[in-house]
Design a protein around this nucleic acid. Sequence first.
DNA 1: CATACGTCCTGCCAGC
DNA 2: TGCTGGCAGGACGTAT
Length: 287
Amino acid sequence: MPELPEAETIARGLDRVLPGRAVSAVSVLRPDVMGTPAAPFARAVVGRRFGPVGRRGKNVVLELDDDGRIVVNLGMTGRLIPGADPHPPPPSTHPALLFALADGGSLTFDDVRRFGRVVHIPAARWRAWSRRLGPEPLGRSFTGAVLGGILARSRSPVRSLLLDQRRIAGVGNIYAVEALWFARIHPATPSNRIDPAGAARLHRSLRQVLRRAVAAGGTTLRNYRAPDGNEGRFRRALHAYGRAGRPCPRCRALIERIVFGGRSAFLCPRCQGEPASPGPTSPGTAS
DNA sequence: CATACGTCCTGCCAGC
DNA sequence: TGCTGGCAGGACGTAT
């Protein structure tokens, strides 16, 4: 599932092949992936030349030569596939949006489930758009004190807080679950009950997990592929996510799966003790 | 304001 | 063999 490390891998892959190339045509095959209506999108993009490709949170950001941006949120199954490359890309099975390039190449946004969204952000609106997202967890300014402040301001279960893009940008379920396992914090712990030592462990764990996942090219569970078609190699490094019923790599107790906030979380019941006292009264927290 | 929950969308897989 | 139901889950809209 594309989270920060997957978006980073995709951005780096595209940054090697797209800058300097011009868009000659846009065709929208699946209008529901368009966060900007098709006609204005095409008007804004056709004739523009790509600049650097970067990332903000889970979004791949394609700069244009007029300082506008194409922002791609990959959702669950979105892929960006450059055409006419040295290596043949994986076939596009569910193309949603096609960019024809002036040099004969192409860029395809493919999305099986169509949870992804593509928008055009004019230069004048970029800062405002970016401000809606929380800080970058791998950024220099994301210190332990910053995370501690974010935690202190919320009573939400810490796993839910980590998924909230307005508070921290780029973290999804896989890396939230993994970081909490490393930090030995129960995913349902109310955020403001995490003490400074726990916040410090979580800060370190989160950054370490994300950095390692970026280095491994992300996590492929099923759909995710880098632009070159390669799978992410971080799956084998997962310690808790998706491992219900298997031994905790740290203490050998069996990993549990719980559900809250409509999502699965995985934890070691021995390493990650119960959330302090009563805990959240959410229905359906059976395991 | 903060928090919680339903919804979208399709493919895959276990179970019968 | 073919069907059904559960699951994956990011982000947004609505409700409390």
